[in-house]
Design a protein around this nucleic acid. Structure first.
Lengths: 208, 208
DNA sequence: TGTACATCAGTGAACGCGCGTTCACTGATGTAC
DNA sequence: TGTACATCAGTGAACGCGCGTTCACTGATGTAC
């Protein structure tokens, strides 16, 4: 509403000293740990500040309320993903190769941000999404759609959503074993290799 | 812990009169409505009883606690799914046709139980799953695995999970538009038509 | 060097609120004699 | 037919609890003169 200087609505006030910055950082890091252990329902202000070793009231020095804090965690994750994906697809034209490269980059970032990815997955299901959070969610599909379109998969948007779902499920598989699962990554490639011929579903290819 | 007679831990005590049965039914139906509107976090005892037009205390006549109630909703949904899927795959051998038939049946049940399906999707992400709920969740993958195995998709379990993820995402798509989305159903068929040849991911098929 | 002041980080204690749950109780219905 | 009793459904009011949030305040640091 007010936010005179920065314009970032997820921050109560930006810290100006190094100590302040590190406290805010500590809160966000603690948020990741708590989210991993207790999920979104357990992501209380009390739990986060306890984990960070700060007083509850300190939380409100850096974030206007709980929702903004969750949004900030969300935002961070997507910033990481965006950068990694952008770097990975650099120079690749929309199509299967670009889509798979983007998914690979996404999976790598998920592995580095296990805690937050879990939170993202939870948040997705709930109606408690901020408008900005919903927009970030839709981003993936928007990014994938030109690829499915170039692959002549119709309807392109539906295939884009399904591709994102495959990536998301694979991220979960990898989170469970806490490492890359090449079999799963290859599986995505195999499924997305299907030619979109209308009669494909009625044909048996291998079995004579 | 005790539960002398029925052995069903999700019920505080089974109603014996028709009136009692209808009250319990009203609570479960109200639970579905509230879950659809407010999600799992909004599925409070107060909200459910308000919706059902009963006193809060009445809730505890039929359910030992809130968790058991959610579990009961969960259980109902899976019972419906199980029956529909079992009927749909009757006589079909494990394989692509069986898998697609099962998914079709699953999607139909989801459309009839929009509220509860949303709840299931939410619950899946949270750590708050009961043991029995986790078991019900794993059921889908167990059912799909013989099919992916028969389709020579390796690793079969990974493909089974991805197939379930595709079905789940399609259920969400259909819930959003509140009706069947044939394009999405066909898309699943197209993706699951991919032959599992090891080099498939490196080949471009159509583009010369 | 000493002191007055502004700035920012940080906090203990309290607030109201809605939650899940329990309690002691009422009222209706059916059966026994 | 009348009455005593058991059974079950259902409830209003209260309970403690943990939550998010606010308040008035302290302490440390840096700068001005």
């Amino acid at each position: 509403m007010r936010e005179s200087r920065s314009g970032q609505s997820t921050e109560s006030s930006a810290p100006v000293t190094p100590k302040g910055r590190s406290s805010k950082e500590a809160l966000l890091r603690a948020g990741g740990l708590v989210a991993e252990r207790r999920g979104i329902a357990g992501l209380s202000v009390a739990a986060v500040t306890r984990e960070a070793g700060l007083a509850k009231a300190t939380f409100y020095v850096y974030f206007p309320d709980r929702e903004s804090f969750i949004d900030a965690l969300h935002q961070r994750f997507y910033k990481d993903v965006n950068e990694a994906v952008a770097a990975a697809v650099l120079g690749l034209p929309p199509g299967r190769a670009q889509l798979l490269a983007a998914i690979e980059a996404y999976l790598d970032v998920c592995l580095e941000n296990r805690a937050v990815k879990a939170l993202v997955f939870e948040t997705r299901a709930q109606s408690s999404l901020t408008t900005t959070m919903e927009e970030r969610e839709a981003m993936f599909v928007q990014l994938a759609e030109p690829c499915t379109r170039a692959m002549k998969l119709k309807p392109a948007q539906v295939f884009a959503r399904l591709a994102v779902a495959l990536a998301s499920e694979t991220a979960l598989i990898e989170m469970e074993s806490a490492r890359k699962v090449p079999g799963a990554r290859k599986a995505i490639g195999a499924l997305l290799a299907a030619p979109a011929q209308p009669h494909a579903t009625k044909l048996e290819r291998r079995a004579h």
